[in-house]
Measured scan of single mutants.
Amino acid sequence: KKSYVLIKVKNPKTKETHTIVVPEENLEEVLKALASQPNVKVVDIERFP
């Protein structure tokens, strides 16, 4: 059974918020990819039960 993680990201320029759902096993690479985006800020990470 896969567990999923909900990542909320915000664009500081446009103030838009997006929610991305990723499998927990991919969380680290997704966070690394997001960290390299200049106008993306991770605001929240939630685990799915």
Rank of each mutant, 00 (worst) to 15 (best):
K2I: 10
K2H: 11
K2R: 09
S3P: 08
S3F: 15
S3K: 08
Y4K: 03
Y4M: 05
Y4D: 01
Y4R: 03
V5N: 01
V5P: 00
L6V: 07
L6D: 01
L6Q: 04
L6N: 03
I7S: 00
I7L: 06
K8Y: 15
V9M: 10
V9Y: 15
V9G: 00
V9H: 02
K10W: 15
K10N: 08
K10S: 11
N11P: 01
P12M: 15
P12T: 15
K13W: 14
K13N: 09
K13H: 12
K13G: 07
T14C: 06
T14D: 03
K15T: 06
K15H: 12
E16V: 11
E16I: 08
E16Y: 12
T17P: 03
T17L: 10
T17S: 06
H18W: 15
T19Y: 14
T19P: 02
T19C: 11
I20W: 14
I20R: 02
I20S: 01
V21A: 05
V21R: 07
V21C: 14
V21K: 08
P23D: 10
P23V: 07
P23N: 09
P23R: 10
E24N: 04
E24T: 08
E24S: 06
E24C: 09
E25A: 08
E25P: 03
E25L: 04
N26R: 13
N26P: 00
N26T: 07
N26M: 13
N26I: 10
L27K: 02
E28Q: 11
E28N: 10
E29S: 10
E29P: 04
V30F: 13
V30Y: 07
L31C: 02
L31S: 01
L31A: 01
K32W: 13
K32E: 06
A33P: 00
L34C: 02
L34A: 01
A35W: 11
A35H: 09
Q37T: 09
Q37E: 06
P38C: 10
P38V: 07
P38Y: 04
P38D: 08
N39D: 11
N39P: 02
V40D: 02
V40A: 07
V40H: 05
V40F: 11
K41A: 08
V42Q: 01
V42Y: 02
V42R: 01
V42E: 02
D44H: 15
D44C: 13
D44W: 15
D44F: 15
I45T: 03
I45P: 01
R47P: 11
F48P: 05
F48D: 04
F48Q: 06
P49L: 10
P49Q: 11
